[in-house]
């Protein structure tokens, strides 16, 4: 009797299909829908990630300049911020739903929202 029989191929094909389908559904881009900008925790701008936008926010350090949020199709970033260490600027483009850039000195946050929002961290 042969090692691999007709039904075996069927099961292997089904297993392959299940693997590919799970990979597609789990690892597919969780497309972010909006860039949400908050100042002191309040939403001050909600920009769709479809077109190009540039928004200036006068944050807690507004005497030293505005925080500039830049949106392009599918991504957003903090283009400029008066904060001393520039962490939120250096973070660059955010592309995944749920990712956040925090400009703590300015009290400004930029977050991408969308259907497939992921947790920041899972610890167990």
């Amino acid at each position: 009797m042969t090692v691999v029989r007709p039904g075996d191929w069927l099961v292997i094909a089904a297993g392959l299909a299940a693997t590919v389908a799970t990979a597609a559904s789990q690892w597919g881009q969780a497309a972010p829908a909006h860039a949400q900008v908050r100042l002191d925790g309040r939403v001050v701008a909600e920009l769709p990630l479809t077109g190009r936008h540039r928004v200036s926010i006068d944050g807690a350090l507004s005497s030293r300049g505005p925080t500039v949020i830049e949106v392009e199709p599918g991504r957003a970033r903090v283009a400029a911020d008066p904060g001393p260490r520039q962490y939120c600027v250096l973070q660059g483009w955010l592309t995944r739903a749920g990712s956040v850039a925090v400009c703590a000195p300015s009290h400004v946050t930029l977050q991408l929202t969308g259907a497939g929002s992921m947790p920041d961290t899972v610890a167990f």
């Binding site: 009797m1 042969t2 090692v3 691999v4 029989r5 007709p6 039904g7 075996d8 191929w9 069927l10 099961v11 292997i12 297993g15 299940a18």
Partner: peptide, 18 residues
């Protein structure tokens, strides 16, 4: 319930692994 002539150890092994 499925015949071993048609579904051998390989198919059963894969199904069981999943």
């Amino acid at each position: 319930a499925v015949s071993w002539r048609w579904l051998g150890p390989v198919g059963r092994s894969v199904a069981a692994a999943f």
